[in-house]
């Protein structure tokens, strides 16, 4: 700003522009220097694989993943004509629809009740967060026992109640639902913890003044807690969305994509095509589609979400 105030002269102006340019360059390279570590890490672990995936998606490959025949967009056309891929897209969307709201509602409820200052509430907090400490594999094995068609506890319970047994993981009408339940259970620990953290950082004076005004519990929940929690909720929703799209472990353990491809979520379908069928081209094409879906959804979320999010 100071320089602009100097008396105007042609040659000085030129020198000024140069100096400004140099300054800008210096600050740009300084900025780049700070960004360098993350740029390198991103390039090695994200951008290069992304480029490689795009490249592979235009080829057929042999079993060790080397490209053999260039086919252009054929892989993309094939997957969009394949009933299996369309089914897998549909299942993935349904799965996201079941698990994201499910996880968030369950953990929000748990976080709100665990946020009350009661004796021994620490025990419950630990309990609700504990699923975070259980690996997907261990949790899946545990649910596998619950879901077992004849000796599983869930069906034993149904039997006691006099109801018919349900093929939790073998009946195509139930399988996706069952996997979703298991997933909600597995993810609720992490979401609970983040939401509880968010709740605890809300200033108490807001509640105090609301109390003075004579606000009721649900009024405070709606007008103070939820708006103040919105940044945390926004983060949790975004992360849950992406997680749900990338679900793999429990599918591999519980159903292996079956029955009838009902739980063949897109990442599992990519895995099957690449590492079991050795069709790296088709798998890469699917991965690119998944990338764009997540990219678009995240952009939409940021556009819509940021308007509603209330930052302190």
């Amino acid at each position: 700003m100071k320089q602009v105030a100097l008396p105007y002269q042609e040659h000085e102006h030129k020198g000024l522009l140069k100096a400004l340019k140099l300054q800008r360059m210096a600050s740009f390279s300084k900025g780049m220097l700070f960004l360098l570590p993350s740029i390198i890490l991103f390039s090695v672990f994200l951008f290069y694989p992304l480029g490689r995936t795009l490249y592979l998606s235009f080829f057929l490959t042999n079993s060790s993943g080397q490209t053999t025949v260039f086919v252009g967009l054929e892989n993309y056309m094939n997957i969009f004509n394949s009933p299996i891929f369309l089914k897998s897209l549909q299942s993935t969307l349904l799965f996201v629809l079941y698990t994201v709201p499910g996880t968030i509602l369950v953990s929000l409820f748990l976080a709100i009740i665990a946020n009350e200052k009661l004796k021994g509430v620490g025990l419950f907090r630990t309990m609700y967060a504990s699923t975070m400490g259980i690996s997907t594999a261990a949790a899946s094995v545990f649910w596998l026992f619950l879901f077992h068609p004849s000796i599983g506890w869930l069906n034993q319970l149904l039997k006691l109640l006099g109801a018919d047994a349900i093929g939790w993981l073998t009946n195509p009408d139930w399988a996706l639902f069952s996997v979703s339940i298991a997933t909600i259970w597995m993810n609720s620990g992490f979401t609970f913890l983040i939401l509880l953290g968010g709740l605890q950082s809300i200033d108490q004076y807001l509640y105090e003044s609301a109390n003075i005004d004579g606000a009721g519990y649900f009024y405070k929940l709606r007008r103070i807690t939820l708006p103040m929690l919105s940044p945390t909720l926004f983060f949790v929703i975004t992360v849950s969305f992406i997680n749900a799209f990338q679900t793999f472990g429990q599918i591999d353990m519980l159903t292996r994509g079956g029955p009838q491809n009902e739980t063949n979520l897109i990442v599992y379908s990519i895995y099957q095509d690449a590492f079991m069928n050795y069709q790296f081209g088709t798998a890469s094409a699917q991965a690119m589609i998944l990338f764009f879906i997540i990219l678009i959804l995240t952009l939409i979320q940021f556009k819509l979400g940021e308007r509603k999010v209330h930052y302190q």
Partner: peptide, 17 residues
């Protein structure tokens, strides 16, 4: 119907289902 799961099938056999 035990689907694709062989372990469940054998467990069902042991349980006389």
């Amino acid at each position: 119907n035990y689907g694709t799961n062989g372990d469940n099938m054998i467990a069902g056999f042991f349980a006389e289902d």
